[in-house]
């Protein structure tokens, strides 16, 4: 019903975006968020440019997951502004629908749909949210399954795959929507050590294609290889934001030093 309208609006908006601010993809300005009395995000300012890879790290409960969940409006911020792809996130449902089709997200627990086969998992978004014909959607899905190196699992159900395979499927599912931005919320935390590598490899390959990525992770090796910037969050604040080399070798803040000494 509203999806077609959204899509049309999306198309027109794309032109506006390319004309106005081509390089800034995500912009947080003085964003605040509370859970009841708990201040999860405190005056967050963050700008992510097109093609940039940001790694967010920090102790648990520091608000890093909340931060990236605000980007596709899974969480609502209470003050400040978040502009994604030139569109302000507010309570306008049309904007939210649009942003969600443009922003892919990969979760800690994969969150595949257990009642659908891998192929159906991948096709669902393109068919229902993008209104692509099933045949085309299946072509795209197979293309991405090949990219994450598990095309032979297409007809299986998520429970039949290993954790690493499921996470790769989850990445492919997001890519099928042809997103402009990819968000990763601790994608390797729920995996056994031997499976972390295969997921990280896929993510590195994805980074090489020039995708804008925001990754919450504790994999500091990944951050060193891929990230353009590393951000440390603690108690709802961005404590330090720097290039990986400087971040790891010459941390400016006490809290960063503390964190790095614990994790490395």
């Amino acid at each position: 019903m509203t999806e077609t309208k959204t899509q049309e609006a999306g198309k027109t908006r794309k032109h506006l975006v390319s004309a106005a601010s081509s390089s800034v993809m995500i912009e947080f300005t003085q964003v605040n968020k509370w859970y009841d009395d708990f201040h999860v995000l405190k005056n967050i300012d963050l700008t992510v440019h097109q093609g940039e890879r940001i790694v967010v790290c920090g102790p648990s409960g520091s608000g890093k997951s909340t931060l990236i969940r605000c980007i596709n409006h899974l969480e609502e911020h209470q003050s400040g502004s978040i502009v994604v792809d030139g569109i302000t996130l507010n309570r306008n449902l049309k904007n939210i629908d649009y942003i969600r089709t443009e922003v892919g997200m990969v979760f800690q627990n994969f969150n595949l749909f257990p009642h659908l086969t891998i192929l159906e998992n991948l096709c669902l978004g393109p068919i229902w949210a993008r209104k692509i014909s099933r045949a085309d959607a299946e072509d795209v899905a197979m293309k991405y399954l090949e990219r994450v190196k598990i095309p032979e699992q297409a007809e299986k159900y998520p429970e039949q795959l290993s954790g690493g395979q499921q996470q790769r499927v989850a990445i492919a599912r997001s890519l099928c929507m042809n997103p402009k931005i990819m968000l990763f919320d601790e994608p390797t935390s729920a995996l056994d050590p031997e499976m972390i590598k295969e997921v990280l490899e896929v993510m590195i390959e994805l980074a090489d294609t020039g995708m804008t990525m925001v990754v919450v992770t504790h994999e500091m090796g990944f951050a060193q290889i891929v990230a353009d910037r590393v951000i440390l969050m603690d108690k709802g604040e961005i404590v330090e934001e720097n290039e990986p080399v400087a971040f790891f070798n010459n941390p400016q803040h006490e809290r960063t030093k503390m964190f790095l000494s614990q994790i490395l």
Partner: peptide
């Protein structure tokens, strides 16, 4: 709740989420 979130992130609306993702699983 994660299933709702996953459905939202691939751009499904309320009724699509319910009809395609949640209800088929819940009915089972």
């Amino acid at each position: 709740k994660r299933q709702f979130e996953a459905a939202h992130t691939i751009g499904l609306g309320y009724w699509q989420t319910m009809g395609l993702i949640i209800m088929p699983q819940a009915l089972k």
